[in-house]
Design a protein around this nucleic acid. Structure first.
Length: 256
DNA sequence: ATGGTGGGTTCCCCA
């Protein structure tokens, strides 16, 4: 089974890249972030035509998550249990086969000290509480999406310049570590230790062409999920050329 | 120190 995550930066704008990518890579499940569309305007038909069931939790203009799955999705849950009705749409979970999947779009945070940064840290506390409340670390649990946080210097093209920058600061990394302590491992690092594996590059200033990126899209796996995972790779090919997202997809493969 | 690009739907916000 192949499970992928991709911040598409608008699912409607990305359709001309997304549909051929699905045909080429044939993931069984795709977790989408930044769909940027209300649920009743989500482009269901061209994706259903590729053989996917679709669950959405979106909003106008900003944020939004969705899951495409060739297998039935059960126990679908939208947002956090304590979300107010107007909360930004950032979390969507379901069970596929025996895997609990949680798809996240973690707040960006903008800059250290910004009110959005404070919100980001608080949101990560609520994520940990949600895991404690609704997930079982002894089961196969897969938490994926755009975390907007790097783990360490290997994930950053300019670690010195970014030392206290957004996505790299100590408080963000500490909050991510707190989430991991639920019983989750950084899946990609189980297979690939080298520095310079990135999932995001700025659209500005030829970031991708210059190799100026960060690894901020992750697969966090419980022990049981990690045991049946055989590899996790970034599909940098999807970041090449025109009309791309600023993120590349990440693909995890599991033994059946 | 600043700006550069891209998406949405704004007369600017967000990443």
């Amino acid at each position: 089974m192949k499970i992928a995550t991709w911040n598409v930066n608008s699912v409607r704008a990305r359709l001309p890249r997304l549909v051929p990518w699905l045909q080429e890579r044939q993931p069984d499940v795709l977790c989408i972030q930044e769909s940027k569309v209300e649920d009743d305007l989500f482009p269901r038909e061209p994706l259903e035509d590729e053989g996917y069931n679709i669950e959405v939790h979106g909003e106008k203009t900003y944020n939004g998550v969705a899951i495409l799955s060739r297998y039935p999705m059960e126990a679908v849950a939208k947002g956090f249990p304590d979300d107010p009705p107007d909360a930004s749409r950032r979390a969507l979970s379901c069970i596929v086969k025996d895997m609990m999947i949680l798809n996240l779009y973690v707040p960006n945070g903008q800059a250290l000290g910004h009110p959005k940064y404070v919100d980001k840290l608080a949101w990560l506390d609520r994520l940990r509480a949600y895991l404690d409340q609704s997930f079982d670390p002894r089961e196969k649990v897969l938490v994926t999406g755009d975390f907007n946080i790097t783990f360490d210097d290997r994930d950053v093209w300019d670690p010195e310049g970014m030392r206290d920058g957004i996505h790299c600061s100590r408080p963000e990394r500490d909050k991510l570590a707190q989430v991991m302590q639920f019983g989750l491992a950084d899946g990609l690092r189980h297979f690939h230790e080298e520095a310079g594996i990135y999932t995001w590059w700025h659209h500005r200033g030829m970031g991708f062409q210059r190799g100026q990126g960060m690894r901020i899209d992750h697969f966090l796996l419980s022990d049981a999920a990690l045991r049946c995972c055989t590899d996790i790779v970034v599909d940098t090919g999807a970041r090449k050329g025109r009309n791309t997202s600023d993120h590349a997809p990440v693909i995890a493969t599991f033994a059946e």
